[in-house]
Design a binder for these strands. Structure first.
Length: 848
RNA sequence: GCCCGCGUGGUGGAAUGGUAGACACAGGGGACUUAAAAUCCCUAGCCGUACGGCGUGCCGGUUCGAGUCCGGCCGCGGGUACCA
């Protein structure tokens, strides 16, 4: 008997699958289709365990669906544009294109040995001109339909490198290379009108039954629908001096209007700009407000700063009541009207601000019962009832929600503003001042203005002859690339040098996979058959942006005739998987700074020279912490099936999984055991045919449980069940025929996770054809029914004993039996039960 | 700061509101072996010699019954619109 040799087996079966071409997906109208997609990888150059886990999960689904009669589409591609390629070019002088395509070749080479059931004929990279050219065509169609426009928006500006920085390139408010203090600066940028779809994107979440509730909640909060009051404060100084006689504000808490203590405006508000033009101190303060990065986090956590403009605003309910007007650094021009009224008593930010500038804090409502909180803003849930002490509409005691509604009604009736619905969702700025992205296909003409490029001129290709020796966008400083002629008038003109956000690339790749070589963005016949993605799998980090942008894109593509209306929600089911983590091994250098060590250099908590390492609990694998395990080395040591089995076995798929060397060895030992059990089935062993039924019952239960596990993404549960079934098979004294049947079914149940080993066992035991082509086994209901059940017996909710009864025993008989059991008699000790609860087939609880 | 998650033995984890710890790792004991490896069997939450008590991050609540539901804390992770 030969031993389990993953290397031999895996190469053999991968070749067999290739030869049979079974993963090639083609339209077949007579079969139900199933489209499985994992979020495609960024080509960093090396696959990591997270990829192995993500793609193995997709592969389990793909192989399972295929064996249940579906025509499966399971493609793979590369999210190939982005900053790391440019960073690599800056660091080591290469070219982003060369770097990216080399990385793709490397990663493809590392991925293929995993034995994934992928249709590689559909592979593409988003940096292929054939892909981004079609993306440019989509952009032009969007432009034509009014879904794209230009406006000013703020970016992180590095005043030393004279370049725009990404948020991750800003560290503690400074540019990562220059170290200069970053400023917010306005640029004219291209935008997608995603805000036109706010209501639809929000409402359609309800229909996404197979999406995680948390993702839908996050998206709903992100879209942020709110109802509030828009009104204006009249300014005490008239418009002769200012050009402004009022400040328009939006508030979601108009019920607290009598608690107003100041009016705040953004440093980018037109009024602030006007004041800044006349007053150097105000100008300097507005500059101060623009310091730091553009992230919401940076703005929200920065110290609250305000500047009293000296202007006064009149309270809308009382002309004599004057409020100071402040410019404040925490008010965003992008949201609402760029101006607020401050109600310190019921808003933490306003409270902090008012405390700092010694502004009044006026309570408008109190708790119905209990203490009013001291030293902080009182902000109960809007659904909670409060007592209004400075209310002006509705009941004295009502919920915040009722108070807001009543306040809006009152204000509208009295001519103070109007109730409006607003969304937090902002339009999607897609301009990037970078080289390695899809060029925006428009031309700037001195006479015609901004003109779309002609479709027949697409793709607008990136030039290859660029350098990265100086900061900034190489397209801007290229000697000739910008030169072109105006598509409208033919005169010399200049190309747009902004490229697209890489989120654009990943917002439609799922649709392009249905017709990856089409000379239009999407072949509608193919899309009609293959869309939607039936199961999408990827990381929770994409819960908001990528998925929201993709949902918008599918709608926009439909409007432009590139997707059927049924594909406007492109992902039927979503699954978000956890990360692969590993413990971290650390020692300290002479200066007490941490030094990290690779897992392969640590044995029993010691380095080769005997130095003890400190073990830090598991964290996401990262190169800087050296807590990485390379899938390539695992595959060469144990085989792909072991890696696949392990990443699925130890944790629920939505949670993180910790990679441990011991776990990987155990996985490999188990697979060897399965191989050995299968190989030994033919050998003569003492057999007892009366054991057959017990084994076959176990088999049918395993079929039921493993199938249920796969269908509900409980891969770890399926694997636990497979361990148990393997143990039963290993110990069984049943006859050869029953064992052979059980082992063939075991191979089938394992085939989505460990396809190579499954094929080997299948062929060893005389299975017909490829296991990858065999139909999924069915559980026989008759074999699943148990005659008796064991019921735990509780007294006052504590378990005191158990009884075994026929499964359909009537309640009162179960009750009698329970009451006469030794455990109950002893525990009751003569006491009379108040109540006896019998849950059939589940539990008996005696309450004293 | 704000939004969303997660927290169970020495470890990874299991558990439609119904026997907490399935399955596995590490551990302990044993069989086989001259010995080892491999394999197989048994054992195992914690405390207590038995009966028993305590246990799912912490505090409180709902329930006959809570890991699971509700409220409040603590810790960790994801997102925060130019990382992908």
């Amino acid at each position: 008997m030969s031993r389990y040799s993953a290397a031999e087996i895996e190469a053999k079966w991968q070749e067999a699958w290739d030869k049979a071409g079974i993963f090639r997906a083609e339209v077949a109208q007579d079969k139900p289709k199933y489209y499985v997609l994992e979020m495609f990888p960024y080509p960093s150059g090396r696959i990591h365990m997270g990829h192995v886990r993500n793609y193995t999960m997709g592969d389990v689904v793909a192989r399972y669906k295929s064996s249940t009669g579906h025509n499966v589409l399971h493609p793979m591609g590369w999210d190939a544009f982005g900053m790391p390629a440019e960073n690599a070019a800056m660091a080591s002088g290469g070219h982003p294109k060369e770097w990216t395509y080399n990385n793709i070749a490397d990663m493809r080479g590392q991925m293929k040995p995993l034995g994934l059931s992928i249709d590689w004929s559909r592979e593409f990279a988003t940096c292929d001109p054939e892909y981004y050219g079609q993306q440019q065509a989509l952009f032009l169609d969007f432009l034509d339909k009014g879904l794209v426009y230009r406006k000013n928006a703020v970016v992180n500006w590095d005043p030393v490198d004279m370049t725009v920085l990404a948020n991750e390139q800003v560290e503690n408010g400074r540019g990562w290379r220059s170290g200069a203090l970053v400023e917010r600066r306005e640029l004219t940028q291209w935008f997608f009108k995603i805000s036109d779809f706010s209501e639809d994107l929000l409402e359609a979440l309800d229909g996404l039954d197979d999406w995680p509730a948390k993702v839908k909640l996050m998206q709903a909060n992100w879209i942020g629908k709110s109802r509030g009051l828009q009104f204006s404060f009249g300014l005490v100084e008239g418009e002769e001096e200012l050009g402004h006689d009022r400040v328009e504000v939006y508030t979601t808490r108009p019920d607290t209007l009598l608690g107003a203590s100041f009016v705040g405006i953004s440093a980018d508000h037109p009024l602030a700009k006007e004041l800044a033009a006349k007053d150097e101190k105000i100008a300097a303060f507005c500059e101060e407000c623009r310091k730091g990065g553009t992230t919401e986090e940076a703005i929200e956590t920065a110290e609250k700063l305000g500047y009293d403009t000296g202007l006064k605003a009149r309270h809308p309910f009382d002309n004599a009541w004057e409020l100071p007007v402040y410019i404040a650094n925490f008010i965003l021009m992008d949201y609402g009207t760029g101006a607020i009224f401050g109600c310190p008593a019921h808003d933490p930010r306003d409270y902090e601000f008012a405390s700092k500038y010694e502004l009044p804090i006026v309570t408008t409502f109190e708790p119905v019962e209990g203490e009013y909180p001291a030293g902080e803003a009182f902000v109960p849930l809007k659904s909670e009832k409060v007592r209004y002490v400075r209310g002006f509409a509705g009941e004295e005691v009502q919920t915040g929600e009722q108070g807001v509604d009543a306040a809006i009604d009152f204000c509208e009736a009295n001519g103070v503003g109007r109730g409006v619905t607003k969304f937090r969702l902002r339009d999607w700025g897609l301009s990037r001042q970078r080289y390695w992205g899809c060029p925006i296909p428009v031309v700037h003409c001195a006479d015609c203005g901004v003109v779309p490029e002609k479709k027949e001129n697409l793709p607008i290709r990136l030039p290859d002859d660029v350098t990265f020796d100086t900061p900034g966008n190489p397209l801007d400083r290229h000697p000739t690339w910008r030169d072109c002629s105006c598509p409208t008038c033919g005169k010399p003109a200049r190309r747009e040098t902004d490229t697209m956000d890489t989120f654009v690339d990943s917002s439609w790749y799922y649709a392009r996979f249905t017709s990856p070589r089409a000379d239009v963005p999407i072949d509608m016949t193919e899309a009609a058959y293959w869309m939607n993605v039936d199961q999408y799998i990827g990381g929770i980090e994409h819960a908001i942006l990528h998925l929201l942008y993709s949902r918008f894109f599918a709608r926009a593509m439909h409007i432009c005739g590139h997707l059927p209306s049924t594909a406007q929600e492109p992902f039927n089911a979503l699954f978000t998987q956890g990360m692969v983590t590993h413990e971290i091994y650390q020692t300290k250098d002479a200066n007490d700074r941490p030094v990290y060590h690779f897992p392969e250099d640590v044995t029993d908590g010691k380095l080769a020279d005997g130095t003890e390492v400190e073990i830090i609990p598991s964290a996401k694998m990262s190169k800087s912490k050296k807590n990485v395990v390379d899938p390539v080395s695992i595959i060469s040591a144990y085989g792909a099936d072991t890696a696949r089995w392990f990443v699925l076995s130890d944790s629920p798929p939505e949670r993180d999984v910790e990679w441990t060397a011991a776990g990987a060895e155990a996985a490999h030992r188990h697979l060897s055991r399965v191989y050995r059990i299968a190989a030994e089935i033919d050998a003569a062993a003492p057999a007892d045919a009366t054991e057959d039924e017990a084994l076959l019952r176990e088999m049918h239960k395993a079929v039921r449980d493993v199938t249920l596990g796969i269908e509900s993404f409980g891969f770890n549960a399926s694997i636990a069940r497979l361990y148990a079934f393997t143990n039963a098979l290993g110990k069984s004294k049943a006859g050869g025929a029953a064992k052979r049947e059980a082992a063939l079914v075991l191979a089938q149940l394992m085939s989505p996770m460990t396809p190579h080993l499954a094929e080997e066992v299948w062929s060893l035991l005389g299975g017909e054809g490829l296991i990858a082509d065999a139909p999924w086994p069915q559980a026989d209901e008759a074999m699943l029914v148990e005659d008796t059940v064991t019921l735990p017996i509780q007294v006052n909710g504590k378990r005191r004993g158990e009884i075994t009864v026929p499964r359909d025993m009537p309640k009162d008989e179960v009750e009698k039996l329970a009451m006469s059991s030794k455990a109950v008699i002893r525990t009751l000790d003569g006491a009379q039960p108040k109540k006896i609860i019998v849950v059939p087939g589940r539990i008996v609880n005696v309450v004293v």
